[in-house]
Design a protein around this nucleic acid. Structure first.
Lengths: 227, 227
DNA sequence: GAATTGATGTGAAACAAATCACAAAATATA
DNA sequence: TATATTTTGTGATTTGTTTCACATCAATTC
């Protein structure tokens, strides 16, 4: 029997994020042409890996000429559908939900939070230009804005219930901040973000390294970024 | 030349998180004994994988008897050093920083945010019992509470500068929310959390699946969780 | 315009991770 | 007490990913 769970984010895709971050910095610095080893050096991977990843995503360079920074960035933006605006809905206006609704980077990257929702009428007031609705208006908004992806920031107890309703309304992707393993149909993409786990894993590796001590023979020689 | 960047969070460790989430739910339901296939079924991995992972972390079960839920959970809590309290410091009290400082789950899981910091004197007031200090008091607090791990939620521009200072003060692990590839020494663990990337990757897979259409031949058959 | 140089792109090789297959052990049953 | 059953734990095998090695091409130099 094979595992039914695939890790949503493949390592090659994660590295594409890395390359992109690096590229936009290079572009800001006015660099017009990059080579696989430039990106490799900046991101801590090997240049073969960069080229292999590019080949997976169908990215072609120029023999001896490297890659044009702008073209490369554009290709990457297309990979993530940043060419056309994505309408997103956010559910749960607790601590985290409020912060996410104000998170400017989403908008900068063409991902628009068109509406937020909360069960609590007390929280249903407009904040930072994004309206907060009752859950009863979910269908209306999802249909009107053709929403396919939501951010779920509701408490643990209600996460599954809300997810079920969302899927019934045609949602195909969920970024889930609740520490729950949602049960969803095969065609729905779930990406669980668990802040505690992120912190705990750092604690785990730090302790491991402190124990290993002599800075040699470390299992992780890690100089930069996770992806 | 080998890649110097290792993915901080190994897949086997991610799955330990999964098993733990599952176990604490089972314990709540009064289940005292679990088998590898129980966890396997709940988490979407195979039972051999569960046992292989356990073996990697030195977890032993009872032949024919499975695993004792409580013992297993305790072993896992030890893996993540949840037996002893971890003092954490949070830097940057913007949107996200404020939300993180109020994030109850950290405390529940024995990770104490002992202090927060911000460059802006206007933000330096006590919120939700956790004091907000000026960055000038970093050394004092890090020393007093023997802090080894920090949460970095400062703007992109200042992230590297603050990270440099933190490392100078002896910090060994950083959960970095700024969209920057921090340059740090080999013995410092970085875990980058980029909320945009998490959302974009879901958008990527949703579009891919919509394009693939006929629900068959999907590259991802994904029923539950990311890890 | 031939020779050299410096990059890409990709099969082949090496390595790592997941699955298979089954021995070993513990319990239940006869 | 012997036999059957159930589940763990792990070598062997398969599958997937990264690294190596080099053919290929385009620009530059002679």
């Amino acid at each position: 029997m094979k595992q039914i769970t695939k890790y949503i984010i493949k390592n090659s895709l994660k590295r594409i994020f890395l390359y992109r971050a690096c590229l936009s910095r290079l572009r800001m610095m006015g660099v017009e042409k990059v080579f696989s080893y430039t990106l490799a050096h900046e991101t801590g991977v090997t240049s073969e890996q960069v080229r292999k990843d590019f080949s997976e995503f169908g990215i072609k360079g120029n023999k001896r000429g490297g890659y044009n920074t702008n073209e490369l960035l554009e290709v990457m933006e297309n990979i993530f559908h940043r060419n056309k605006e994505q309408n997103i809905v956010l559910i749960g206006m607790g601590n985290l939900g409020i912060a996410l609704s104000k998170h400017g980077q989403f908008f900068q990257r063409n991902m628009n939070i068109v509406a937020t929702f909360d069960i609590d009428p007390f929280k249903q007031k407009v904040r930072s230009n994004i309206p907060v609705y009752s859950l009863s208006r979910l269908k209306e908004i999802i249909d009107r804005f053709k929403v396919k992806v939501v951010i779920l920031a509701v408490p643990e107890i209600s996460a599954q219930e809300v997810a079920d309703e969302l899927i019934r309304l045609g949602i195909k992707g969920i970024v889930n901040f609740a520490p729950v393993l949602l049960k969803v149909p095969n065609d729905v993409i779930i990406n669980n973000v668990n802040l505690c786990n992120e912190l705990e894993s750092v604690i785990y590796y730090v302790h491991k390294q402190i124990k290993a001590d002599g800075s040699k023979n470390l299992e992780i020689l890690y100089t930069g970024m996770k992806y």
